[in-house]
Amino acid sequence: MRRRSIFLISVACFGYALLYMPIVSVVVYSFNASRLVTLWGGFSTRWYVSLLSDDKLLAAAFLSLRIAVVSATLATALGAIVALALHRVRRIPGRILLSGMITAPLVMPEIITGLSLLFLFISMASLIGWPASRGALTITIAHVTFSMAYVVVVVRSRLAVMDESLEEAAMDLGGRPLAVFFDVTVPMLLPALLSGWLLAFTLSLDDLVISSFVSGPGATTLPMLIFAKVKLGVTPDINAITTIIIGLVIVAVTTAGLVTNRRKAASA
C-alpha cells in the first residue's frame, strides 16, 4: 500500500509538472532580456514595452476582444433560449433535429465547421449578396454558432437541478410568464449564464481554425496573428502576450472563486 501511494504521488507530480511547466517557462522567459531561450540575459520588461508599440498586434487584440464580447453575448442569449425550450417545452417541432444541431458542434472537428461555414458565406454572397465581404461579422457568426452549444450544456445542467416550484410560486403570486422569467428564472440561472458567457468568450478569443477559414482580407484576429508568428518558432513578444493572458485568467478565476466563496459563506 505504501509503495502504491508513492507511485500515485509521483505520477500526479509528473502530471501537474506537465500541465504547468510550459506555462511557467513562458512566464519566466517573457522577462528575459535576451532574444534566445537558452540565454538568460537578465530581467527586462522590454518585450512588454514593444507590445504596446505593435499596432498590428494591438489591432488584432482589439478585434478579437470585440468579436469575443459580441459573440459570447449573443451565444449566451440564444443558448439560454434553446436550453430553456429543450427543458420546458414538451412539443418542439423537430426536437431531435434541434438537439442534434446543438450537440454536434461540441464534437465537430473545427476544420469542418470552418470549411462549411466558409462555403455557406460564399454561396450566400453569390445568391443574395450578403455577407458582401468576410471579416469581423462572419467570424462573429461562426463563433456564436459553435459557442452556443457550450452555453446550452452549461445552462441545461443548471436547469436540471433548479427547483421548479420557485417559478410556480412566482406565478401563483400573480406573476405573468414573462415577469416570472425575469423575476425568478434569470436570477436563478445567473451563475450558469455567467459561466456560459465566460466559456463562450474564452472559446471565441482562443479560436484559430474557424476564424482562419471565415475571415477575409483585413480581419486578422489575435490567434491568427500569433499563429503566423509562432509557426516560425519562439518569439519573445508572444511570451509577453501569453504572460498577460495568464495574469488575466488568474485574476478572473480568483475573483470568481472569491465571489462564490463569499456567496457560500453568506448562505452557510
Binding site: 490567434p223 519562439v234 485568467v249
Partner: peptide, 17 residues
C-alpha cells in the same frame, strides 16, 4: 485552470521547451 489559458499559446509554449 490551464484550460482557461489560450490553447494555442499553451501549445506554443512547448516549442520553447
Amino acid at each position: 485552470l490551464p484550460f482557461w489559458i489560450s490553447f494555442l499559446l499553451r501549445v506554443y509554449a512547448w516549442i520553447g521547451l
